[in-house]
Amino acid sequence: MQHTPSVLTDQLAVEIARLGIVGESSDIGTLHRTTELAAQAVPGCAGATCIRWSVPAADGDEPPEPLASAASHPDLAQLVDRQLARRHGPVFDVVRLRRAVSSDDILAEPRWPEAMNDMLGRGVRCFSTTPHVRAPVLVTLTLYGVAAGALARSQHAIASLLVAQGSAAMSNTLQYDSVHRTAVQLQEAVEARAVVDQAKGILMHELGCDADDAFAEMRRISQTRHVKLTALAQRIVGDQGLHETPEKPDQTID
């Protein structure tokens, strides 16, 4: 990994803002874009990894589980995979405590010896991991530097902004999808009610009965012929020649 000095240009600011827009990308795409922008926007950052975690219920005992991850470099992807496989390391402490952790020089870092050895083997000398929770999404962003002290603490605010925007995008997408499903279900319910009302009107005219009797007749036919009420109404409205046949009470509608 090699670091190219960078600054937070106007274009980078626009790209960071776009992270929070619903529908801009999939969850994996958002995670990848977050790592790419971190490497561009944070001075001293040679690469980054991002993980989306589950958020257990408030009264649940289960710890968060990793749902998806992305890395700006294949070596860093291996670091994530090894840490997740062990279920131990700095990122797990960040998720458990919900606060950032960092090391300015992992040669002098006594915590997480296995994870530190993995980082040293891939040319990493310092790191910083930042969490952000926007229910139901928890995201961690880890920045890596190739020189001791390369990640200045004054630059951690940019990492916080990036991970906040990324988690906001995924949270907003989940909420949008939920609202969209509800809207579709309501629309389907309205359309079903309309066709049932039309079918009742047809039966009222043909049978010379009131609305309650027409609906009761539809329910009786629906039950005896094992067909959904809405499907029955659609057949009646479509004038498919539906008629009762007492001599064949078990007849079903194809």
Rank of each mutant, 00 (worst) to 15 (best):
P66G: 05
V196F: 03
P136A: 02
R18H: 10
E24V: 15
Q165V: 01
L232Y: 06
G208Q: 04
G121S: 12
H156F: 15
A58N: 08
G166Y: 03
Q223K: 08
R86D: 14
V42Q: 02
E109A: 08
L79C: 06
C50A: 11
E109G: 02
P63D: 09
A100K: 03
L120G: 04
V146E: 12
D104N: 09
R122Q: 13
L229K: 00
T230P: 04
S222C: 12
M119I: 03
V137I: 11
S222F: 03
L161D: 12
R220F: 04
A150T: 11
Q251F: 14
H132E: 06
V227P: 01
A17L: 09
A39I: 09
A148G: 04
Q198M: 10
S26E: 09
G121E: 10
L162R: 00
E247R: 13
A233R: 00
R82H: 13
A168M: 15
V55C: 00
R134G: 04
H73R: 11
A152W: 12
I16N: 02
P246L: 05
S160A: 13
R225L: 03
N172S: 14
V22Q: 10
T140H: 05
G166E: 03
P131F: 00
S69W: 03
V163G: 01
S160W: 11
A41E: 13
H73Y: 06
L12T: 13
A150F: 05
A194W: 07
I21G: 06
R99F: 13
L84N: 07
A135Q: 12
G208T: 04
R125T: 11
L162T: 03
Q165A: 08
G201C: 12
P74S: 04
R220E: 09
V7M: 09
L232M: 07
G47N: 05
A39H: 08
R52T: 03
V101Y: 11
V133K: 00
L161T: 14
A77I: 01
Q11A: 13
M116E: 09
R87E: 15
E217Q: 09
P90T: 08
V184M: 09
M170I: 14
D61K: 01
Q175L: 15
Q11C: 05
R86H: 12
D197F: 07
L67I: 10
A159R: 04
L151F: 11
L76V: 10
V124I: 11
P249V: 05
H132V: 02
L79R: 05
E244Y: 14
D27S: 09
Q78V: 12
Y176C: 13
H205E: 11
D210A: 06
R153W: 11
S54C: 03
A152R: 15
S69G: 11
P5H: 07
A150R: 01
Y144D: 01
V95D: 00
A135V: 13
K200I: 15
G47W: 02
L242V: 15
H205S: 14
A233P: 02
A77P: 00
P136C: 04
V163I: 05
V133P: 03
S25L: 14
T130S: 12
P246A: 04
M119D: 01
L174Q: 06
Q234S: 10
P63H: 06
G201M: 07
R225C: 08
I202S: 02
Q240F: 12
C50N: 02
V124C: 00
S128R: 14
S54D: 02
H205P: 01
A168R: 13
A115S: 08
H226Y: 09
P90W: 05
P246Y: 14
M170G: 00
A135I: 15
